Simulated scan of single mutants.
Amino acid sequence: MPSSAMEEWCLQEATAVLKRQGLIVDEEDHLKLAKAIAAAVQRASMTLARYARGEFDGPSLGAPVSMHRGAAPTSASPARSSVTFDELVKGWATERSPTEKTLYEWGRVIRDFAAFVGHVDAAAVTPENVIAWKNDLVAAGRKPKTINDAKLAPVRTILQWGVSNRRLPSNPAAGISISAKKKAGQGIRSFTEEEALTIL
């Protein structure tokens, strides 16, 4: 399906969902819902493609399937203690004493991530969850620097605090980032006055 047709379909679906729920939202929230639908369709297409290749890494057909890959471990996994994102944020904030602005912004990012994975158990997060979230941000048109510095960094830092304080066995966000191309000339400094005089 051409991208323009796909965009129109997602917008129509968003309108239909809002109408069924009896909700009235502004244009920005309407677009957010359309993007969320597009991301869900993309993930579903990738899942179906894996199934077509015989790669069944999730529940059997007919069973409920999580929207995000890397769902909580199965019953065969070793027993683990759950810890909420909120507990980690509070522990990190108590220890590091961040500014009020940083605490608010990082807390919001963590809540957005929790909403994406569909639960608040930080111990159940997998690297696949983090990668799926990163890909979703890319699909939404976020800039690489914003994804790295304002999205992945807070999640990685909070989860690492959990590891350092024996609340988590490992950091699923460790090493996950997005490469950002530098613009031409970026990082090249100009001559100092002394260097310019020497050259002249």
Rank of each mutant, 00 (worst) to 15 (best):
M1Y: 04
M1W: 07
S4M: 11
E7T: 09
E8Q: 15
E8C: 01
W9C: 04
W9P: 10
C10V: 09
C10I: 11
L11A: 08
E13H: 06
V17D: 12
V17N: 06
L18Q: 09
Q21N: 06
G22Q: 11
G22L: 07
L23F: 10
D29I: 02
D29C: 05
L31F: 08
L31W: 06
L31G: 08
K32T: 03
L33N: 02
A34Y: 03
A36Y: 08
A39F: 00
A39Q: 06
A40K: 08
V41H: 01
V41C: 12
Q42P: 01
R43T: 05
A44W: 06
A44S: 10
S45W: 12
A49R: 10
R50L: 07
R50K: 12
R50P: 08
Y51Q: 09
E55M: 03
F56G: 05
D57T: 09
G58C: 02
S60D: 15
G62N: 12
V65E: 00
M67V: 12
R69T: 08
R69D: 13
A71I: 09
A72I: 14
A72L: 13
T74V: 09
S75H: 15
A76F: 08
A79K: 15
S81H: 14
T84P: 04
T84A: 13
D86C: 04
E87N: 00
L88E: 06
G91I: 05
A93N: 13
P98F: 10
T99R: 06
K101M: 01
K101S: 07
T102W: 03
L103K: 13
L103Y: 02
L103P: 04
G107L: 00
G107S: 06
V109T: 11
F116S: 03
V117C: 01
V117N: 04
V120C: 07
A122Y: 01
A122I: 04
A123I: 03
V125K: 02
P127M: 07
E128R: 02
N129Y: 03
V130E: 11
V130G: 02
A132W: 10
A132H: 04
W133T: 08
K134S: 00
L137N: 13
V138L: 14
V138C: 05
A140E: 14
R142M: 14
R142C: 14
P144W: 12
T146L: 10
D149L: 14
D149P: 01
K151T: 03
L152T: 09
V155H: 02
R156A: 00
R156D: 15
T157P: 06
L159D: 10
G162S: 10
N165H: 15
R167F: 10
R167N: 00
L168E: 02
P169I: 06
P169N: 10
S170T: 03
N171A: 07
A173N: 12
A173F: 08
A173K: 00
A174K: 09
A174S: 01
A174H: 05
G175P: 05
G175S: 07
I176K: 04
S179M: 10
A180E: 15
K182Y: 08
K182E: 03
G187N: 00
R189F: 14
F191T: 00
F191R: 01
T192G: 09
E193N: 11
E194N: 15
E194A: 15
A196K: 15
L197F: 11
I199P: 01
